[in-house]
């Protein structure tokens, strides 16, 4: 019985086997007086796991409430959009696209000149999970590489895939000398 206990203590105190060698050697006298199984001690108890799940639940609730609150707050604001010139839009060839930023440098947008010469601009964020969409020249539509969504290049409407609403359209104005200006941005709505 005692030899088994000594073997167990030796195993625990073996520096080569344990990464806590210093702790073991420091507590060796105590270990000899009050031997206990360190491996079992390292296990998570049921109560600890319950508490962890409780904390996770609280975090998920706060996350949901925070995200919903932020979305509701953002929608209630009516931001002012400044006019901004889209550089290089005058020379954009039909059937091609151009990236720019509007209204701020953090908001990427995409301008496209369709084959019939019309200009259309949209926010570049996919309405599904905010991946950046790109203009697919071969099919003349916007595509989202993340989850295979596609949008119409003229209207921004969803053609297929998981996006729940159209892309956010950006209002354009063609001024003197063919300069293209972005003058406003809306939220793409599936209603109407």
């Amino acid at each position: 019985m005692n030899s088994d206990l000594n073997k167990a203590i030796d195993k625990v105190l073996d520096h080569n086997r344990s990464d806590e060698g210093d702790v073991r050697s420091a507590t060796a006298p105590h270990q000899r007086d009050f031997p206990y199984d360190r491996e079992e001690e390292a296990q998570v108890t049921r109560r600890e796991f319950c508490n962890f799940l409780g904390l996770t639940s609280a975090a998920l609730f706060v996350g949901s409430a925070g995200f919903a609150g932020k979305a509701a707050f953002d929608s209630s604001r009516t931001p002012q959009f400044p006019s901004s010139k889209v550089e290089g839009a005058e020379t954009l060839a039909p059937g091609s696209s151009l990236n720019f930023h509007y209204p701020s440098t953090k908001d990427s947008a995409i301008l496209v000149r369709t084959l019939d010469g019309e200009l259309h601009a949209f926010g570049q964020k996919c309405t599904h999970l905010s991946c950046p969409v790109y203009f697919e020249r071969a099919h003349q539509r916007f595509e989202c590489p993340c989850h295979d969504g596609a949008f119409d290049a003229k209207t921004g409407n969803v053609l297929y895939g998981p996006p729940p609403r159209p892309l956010d359209p950006i209002r354009l104005e063609v001024r003197a000398n063919g300069e293209v200006w972005a003058i406003g941005r809306e939220a793409g709505s599936s209603e109407g």
């Binding site: 996770t56 639940s57 309405t127 599936s190």
Partner: peptide
């Protein structure tokens, strides 16, 4: 917890879809 995770995912999707 799993149900709450699903609810969080649904909240994110609803917010991005503007289904307030």
């Amino acid at each position: 917890n799993v149900a709450q995770l699903w609810i969080l995912a649904a909240t994110v999707e609803a917010a991005l879809a503007h289904r307030f």
